[in-house]
Nucleic acid binder design. Structure first.
Lengths: 189, 189, 189, 189
DNA sequence: CATGAATGAGTTTTCATTCAT
DNA sequence: TATGAATGAAAACTCATTCAT
């Protein structure tokens, strides 16, 4: 028999796929269990509820993306390089894990995210905000509110990703890095 | 008693609000009816099904935004001005109808949009693409694939809007027009 | 505008067709109204309820078949001729009004027939029973309980009709009269 | 707790009774569940839909009657004896399982029977037709189309059964075998 | 008389969750 | 641990009937 952890992983993988396709409310728990190859009872053995499941899933991949993007962040490099690094790492993640990225960023996670999930998201945003504020202090970025520069850049990235999901653009690393240059030109001082 | 059209309108308004808050699958039909002040049976008198309702709603506001943005489009003006005009009109729409814009752009409308709705969206994208291609021919924009420039700009706008919905930015016309300048700097040749 | 009677007739005709195809419970009143070219309200102007409608329909055609079969019944003719006459008249009716006959005889009219309808049916059966008893008294028919001879003959006729409805037999007058001879051989003394 | 099969059986038994009394469309699913002593959800655990349920029920008893009537069919006996055997076995079945027989033969199963059910019925009719054709080839039966002889006999049997259900005749084996003799006289050469 | 929008109870069906095994 | 049958509340949807116009 598989190790317990494998079952939880199988459930998370199945849930991810279904939530991306059909949304949280549009996905039935027994369907998740079936796709994961376990019984509904087993799913509830590993996750307290459907909400708990979606929150674990959300945090798992938010943490993954955070680690991928911010671990070993080049705090001592110039803003131009920092921005490129962050954008490139997000691109690597999105290209390597498109479903996970779609789950995190293409869906409106309304009322079912719990405090812990929201706190994690807030923490990430704060980190990014700090980076931007530092670059603004160095006169490297425009003097817009830092939230605006963040929302703009993030939105642009997600816009490209969405176009790829919807089949209008074929994303490649080259294309994304060209877009990085565009975005830099938008926000640089 | 209210005119029939008023009931359909009341249902559409109620559905909009609830779909924005809780998503399509997360919203129960009787709840929509109650909020609209009609019975569930009446809702089905006006709309064939929950899916039909969401599609009518989607097309209604997609058409509204299209009209607002593209009616009397300044085809003979230079690209810079055209871009500003389109961005400004979208901003006006998004500020005047934030819920409607959120419904259209912040939610992932997966499987429930029908052919007609998808065709309308495709038509809009084609119009925008034509505008971009013309500007590219005039060497006013970067020579990226036009879909990329579109997805980037659109994404950036939506990113700002989302930040506003989530309370991280307070959108104003000034702020949005400053962002417009940023975006232009990102895509101009 | 059509005469009132015409509307009631149109409703009865529409109801007949739909009840034959989908049964009483499987047929929605608004559908009957639509098929009749009137509004639901109008239908209820002419018929108190769906049950009242089906009962009126039932009695209308039971009376029609009774009249067709038993009016001017040749009471003074020999049983052989009486039987042929009755069978032939039923055949004429069934061939001329297959839908009506199907409604009356192919459907199980369970709980929705009212007392008046049941009384009419009982009256008809009594008439037929009297005919059979008289023929038995003349030693023309077998000495089975008269109900048995009646049920047998009636069942045989309906069996042929059902085979026609289900497309297994093409009913013609000739075929039905040949069957009449068969049936006579079954029940004659 | 009862074995799973028992629940499915209980549901089938409850459905049979209610469908006979009120017809398919006149019977609500929760009523079936309640009569079977299970919840509505459980019913849907065993049967995909109300239609699936009625089809399983139909095939179950069609198969039962087919086995009862045609298993070990005396193919080498003379037609007279074959006919008596078939009629007698049908009689035994109808007397032993009047509700089941009524469900199969007294109700008009219009649009809800699926292909598999219709195919099973067609197969049965073919078997009976073959028997009749063979007897016709031996000059034992009248030279009517074999479908006519079949529809006639079948109809006569069902007519008697219906009279019994409606309380006009009390069916016994003796009475049914007397009717068998009648029917033979109707169809023999 | 005629309409058809409106109703709300009823229909079929789904689904998050539990629990006996 | 693991199962999956079982549940019952709630979902989407239908329909007989009414009533303001």
């Amino acid at each position: 028999m598989a190790k317990p952890a494998d079952k939880a992983e199988a459930i998370l993988a199945a849930a991810l796929e279904l939530f991306v396709e059909r949304g949280f409310h549009g996905t039935a728990v027994p369907l998740v269990a079936e796709k994961a190859g376990v019984s509904a009872g087993t799913l509830y053995h590993y996750f307290e509820s459907k909400e708990a499941l979606v929150n674990v899933l959300y945090r798992k991949w938010k943490a993954a993306i955070a680690q991928r993007v911010f671990d070993g962040f080049p705090a001592d490099k110039p803003p131009r390089e920092q921005f490129r690094t962050v954008w490139q790492r997000m691109a690597e993640f999105a290209l390597a894990h498109p479903r996970e990225f779609a789950f995190l960023e293409l869906h409106y996670h309304g009322a079912y995210l719990d405090q812990e999930s929201n706190a994690m998201e807030a923490h990430l945003l704060e980190f990014a905000a700090a980076m931007i504020k530092k670059a603004q202090a160095e006169q490297a970025l425009k003097q817009q509110p830092h939230e605006v520069l963040l929302a703009f850049s993030n939105g642009a990235f997600i816009g490209l990703f969405r176009a790829s999901v919807e089949g209008r653009v074929e994303l490649t690393m080259e294309l994304l890095m060209a877009a990085e240059q565009c975005c830099w030109e938008a926000i640089r001082a």
